Amino acid sequence: MLILTCPYCGVDAEETELAPGGEAHLKRFGPGASDEEFRDYLFARENPKGVHFERWRHAHGCGKWFHAARCTMTLEVFGTYPAQTTKPPKAIREAITAKRPGWTWREFE
């Protein structure tokens, strides 16, 4: 079972207490976006076998959205952080790199 710590209220919540929200750190386009930008926002998603950054909502708790870095194969959680964060915190990226040398995904720098 997947257990994530809510960065707001500090509760270790089981996945039954959470609601998934898809991929984290997507650039959302507003009015005036090109057809290609809007298409990519709707349909172009990472679906890695391994480390992934996701959005979750603590639905049966504080109700707030947050991000989680986890491995989709092993359910290993590298950390959680507030949804308002525009890129994964350095400590989480370093924890992933320490366990998975050579790991790359997106450039957040």
Rank of each mutant, 00 (worst) to 15 (best):
L2A: 08
I3C: 07
T5S: 10
T5D: 13
T5W: 11
T5R: 15
C6P: 04
C6T: 01
C6V: 00
C9N: 06
V11M: 02
V11P: 00
D12H: 13
A13M: 08
E15T: 06
T16S: 11
L18N: 06
P20H: 12
G22W: 03
G22H: 11
A24L: 04
A24C: 10
L26Q: 14
G30D: 14
P31A: 15
A33K: 05
S34A: 08
S34D: 09
D35K: 06
D35E: 11
E37P: 06
E37Q: 15
D40G: 01
Y41R: 05
R45F: 09
P48A: 03
K49D: 04
K49S: 03
G50R: 11
V51Q: 02
F53I: 01
F53L: 08
R55W: 12
R55P: 08
R57E: 10
H58G: 07
A59P: 00
H60W: 12
H60C: 05
H60Q: 12
H60P: 00
G61E: 00
G63F: 05
G63T: 07
W65C: 05
F66G: 10
H67G: 07
H67V: 05
H67Q: 04
H67N: 14
A68R: 00
A69E: 01
A69P: 08
R70V: 00
R70Q: 07
R70A: 01
C71P: 04
T72G: 08
T72S: 12
T72K: 12
M73T: 12
M73L: 13
V77S: 04
F78R: 15
F78T: 08
T80D: 02
T80P: 02
Y81E: 00
Y81D: 00
P82L: 01
P82A: 01
A83V: 04
T85R: 02
T85Q: 01
K87Q: 06
P88L: 11
K90L: 14
I92H: 06
I92E: 07
R93D: 02
R93Y: 01
R93C: 07
R93P: 01
R93I: 05
E94W: 02
T97P: 05
A98K: 11
A98C: 03
P101K: 09
P101N: 06
P101Y: 10
G102N: 07
G102Y: 03
W103I: 07
R106Q: 15
R106D: 12
E107R: 10
E107M: 09
E109H: 14
